[in-house]
Amino acid sequence: MVKVRIRLKQRKPNRSLSGDITNIVILIFFGLFFALPLIYAVSNAFKPLDEIFLFPPRFFVRNPSLENFQDLFILMQQSWVPFSRYILNTVFITVVGTVGHVVVASMAAYVLAKHKFPGRSLFFSIVVASLMFSYHVTAIPSYLIMSFLKWIDTYYAIIIPQLAYSLGLFLMKQFMEQIPDSLLEAARIDGASEFRVFWQIAMPTVKPAWLTLVIFVFQNLWNTTGGTYIYSEELKTLPFALQQILAGGIARAGVAAAVALLMMTVPITLFIITQNNIIQTMTTSGIKE
């Protein structure tokens, strides 16, 4: 595969300079507007307690301190179950759920987009329609099903439904449709099994799609409290444990700011890594027809 380097300094032939400048000005203006919560979250986490309750409130921190983080670590050590256990639980749920979902949803999306068989368009419409039903009212039937399966207080209750998250199938199917049939046909003629065609041809072609999906599922699972289904203390997740710490209320406002920042850093780091990867996929052309 030949790496195609895009020359940055040479503008595309049909772009005007004034248009490029307008573009950058607009993006900087709105960028500041959208970056607000990040700046605020970082600034807040380093505010000592008296600054958090300062009236009138201030956006930026004046005397940054690590007080909030120290308090948080002291509280973590007082936890009944070792805190590392909560972290491990959340990491386990997140990794297994994310990988599992991407594989299960992509397999289904692949045949829905690229095979012709009876029932496929009906199935796909049901999946899309299911996105439009409020989850608030399905909570009770779902709980009954879990209890019928004896999955209460196990991770099955959290991970398994996540594997068939409707959004993932929809997203993957939309991207799989764009794969040229000739690419898949060529691999089949070479004698590749259908699974190999899916795994070694289709999946690498839609890398931007599943990298995006990883972010969505990761974010969901990372913030899962598991509150409804998990009762055993040693099975509880990190967000749940942190919620318990924050139940201390207003006195823990500083710790809450530190927690908010720490919880954010993991998805954001992953997000930066995947975005970089998505953009690299584009510059290595050759897989496309």
Binding site: A108, V111, I126, V127, V137, T138, P141, A164
Partner: peptide
């Protein structure tokens, strides 16, 4: 017809099973 499309249904099966149990049934019950 099902046998002819065996591979397609096998790819779809894990998703379809989980989706039916944890999404379709709760929605229909609601």
């Amino acid at each position: 017809e099902v046998k002819r499309n065996k591979v397609s249904y096998m790819f779809l099966a894990p998703y379809a099973l989980i989706f039916t149990v944890f999404t379709v049934i709760p929605v229909l019950v609601s």
